[in-house]
Nucleic acid binder design. Structure first.
Lengths: 233, 233
DNA sequence: CGAAGCCTTGATGCGCCTCAACGTACGTGG
DNA sequence: CCACGTACGTTGAGGCGCATCAAGGCTTCG
C-alpha cells in the first residue's frame, strides 16, 4: 500500500473544512484498495465492517429481494462516501456494492465512525446532509415509479446519468462508464427488452447513439422533453 | 393554550433519556395546537418555519408532482416527529402534511432545531436514526414498486397498517383511522378502482371486512401470503 | 476460433388503467 | 328531521402498455 497524501481527500466534500494535520491523522487510519471492474466490494446483509470513500471510478449500489430480483439504487461517483451503514444506525449493509469500472477506494473500520463524527462536526453535518439528500432522492423515485410510464422513467434515468457523470464528445454527452440495457432496466423497473426497444427508437429519431454498454446522448433537449411528458400531451 | 407537562414527552422516543428539567425547558419553547380532520398542517414547498411532534392522532404525508398526481409517502403516528425539514438540511417542506383524524401536535420554531441538536446529543442521535430508517423504508418501497404486482403491494400496505396502527376488535384487526380506497391507491401506485376490486375479492374470501373508510383484517395470515407471493406460485 | 455475454426484434397475452354508470353513506342546512 | 348534495364505493366493458416467450445476430476476450 502506497503512502496516502492529505491532498487526496482535502478537496472531497465530506472532509472539506478539516485542517490538514487532521486529514493526515484520518488517512493514517484508512486503507486504500483497488477493485477491478465487476468485483463486489460488500454484500447486502453482511456485517458492516467498514465504510468507504470512492477516490476513482464508479460504484453500482444494488438492492436484492428475497426472490432474486434486483434493483440499482444509485451509482456512486468519485468523491462520495458509500457503505456508510453507521450513518443509518445499521450493523449490516443494506445493499451490494459492485465496481462498475476499475475503482480505487479508501476504507475505514466501522468502529472508527463514532470517533470521526464526534471529533469532526463538519464531517457529521456533511454526511447527514448526504443521507437527507438520498432520502429525498429515494422518495422522488418512489413517486416516479408510481406515476410515470416506462418511457419517461428511462428518459429521466439516462438524462440524469448524462448530466451527472457524462463527458462531452464530438457526438454529444457520453455516459462515462459501461452500462448495459439490463442495468438501465434495473434502475427503472422494466425489462432489458423494453429498454432496447426504446433506445433503438430514440436512435432513429437522433436523440441518442448507443452500442454495447455505451450510451451517448446526442439531443439532450429532446430527451428532456420525453422525460417530462406524460401520457396525454 | 394550556400548560404543558413534562410527562407529555418524557416517554416519547426522540426525547427519551433527557432529564425532566430539560424537558420543561424544551416544552416552554413549544406550542400546542389542535388540527381537525382534513386540515393541512403544512404544504410542500412552503418555508419550513416549524417542526412538529404528534401527540395524538394520525398524519398523512403526501408528495405532490408538478402535474398534480400525488402519493402518500407515509402515515405518522403519535409519538413521532414530522416536518423535520431541518434534519434533512432543507429549508422548505418536501411534502404536505394532512390530519387523517383530529390531531394534537406540538411545534417548535425551525430556528430552534440547531439549539436542540447541539444541546441534546441523544435527541440528535435519535432523529438521525429515524431519518436512516425512513431512507431504508423508501428504498424498500422503491424496489417493491419495481418488482411486485399491484395485489402484492396492496396486501403489504394494508398488512403494515394493520400491524402498526391496528386495534383488535371482535372481527379482527381494524385500521385505527379512516382510510379510503383512494388513499390506499395513492400509497401503492394504483387506482381506487383496482383497490376496490381487490378488497371485494378479499372480502369474499374472508380475508378482510371493509366499509366506507374502514378496513378490518380478519385473516392476517392469508393476507401475509398474498403479500409475499409473486406471480408464479 | 469458439464461447459467453450483450443486443435486437418479432409475436403473443394479460394485468391493470381508463371510461362509464350507478349505488350508497354521510352530514348539512332548511 | 328529512331532503338533498357530495363524497365514497362498486362493478362492467374495452383497450393498451409492457412483460413474456422465442429466436437469432453481433462483440469481445481468452
Amino acid at each position: 500500500m502506497s503512502l496516502l497524501d492529505a491532498s487526496l481527500i482535502a478537496d472531497v466534500p465530506p472532509f472539506r473544512g478539516i485542517e490538514r494535520q487532521n486529514l493526515v491523522e484520518l488517512l493514517s487510519k484508512a486503507r486504500s484498495e483497488r477493485y477491478e471492474m465487476g468485483r463486489t466490494i460488500f454484500r447486502q446483509g453482511e456485517e458492516a465492517h467498514s465504510f468507504f470513500l470512492l477516490l476513482d471510478g464508479h460504484i453500482r449500489v444494488v438492492r436484492v429481494t428475497p426472490d432474486g430480483d434486483q434493483m440499482i439504487a444509485r451509482y456512486i461517483s468519485s468523491g462520495e462516501l458509500f457503505g456508510i451503514a453507521q450513518a443509518l444506525s445499521l450493523d449490516s449493509y443494506p445493499a451490494n456494492a459492485v465496481a462498475a469500472v476499475d475503482c480505487i477506494a479508501l476504507s475505514w473500520p466501522g468502529s472508527y465512525w463514532q470517533t470521526i463524527t464526534d471529533r469532526y462536526p463538519t464531517f457529521a453535518t456533511n454526511t447527514y446532509k448526504t443521507v437527507g439528500a438520498r432520502l429525498q432522492e429515494a422518495q422522488n423515485k418512489m413517486v416516479e415509479m408510481a406515476t410515470e410510464r416506462v418511457e419517461q422513467r428511462v428518459a429521466k434515468a439516462i438524462s440524469k446519468l448524462a448530466n451527472q457523470t457524462g463527458q462531452k464528445t464530438d457526438d454529444g454527452i457520453l455516459i462515462s462508464f459501461p452500462i448495459s440495457r439490463q442495468d438501465i432496466s434495473e434502475m427503472t423497473g422494466t425489462t432489458l427488452h423494453t429498454v432496447s426497444r426504446l433506445l433503438s427508437a430514440w436512435e432513429n429519431k437522433g436523440i441518442v447513439k448507443s452500442s454495447r454498454k455505451k450510451i451517448t446522448v446526442t439531443d439532450s433537449h429532446q430527451l428532456a422533453v420525453l422525460a417530462s411528458r406524460d401520457l396525454h400531451n
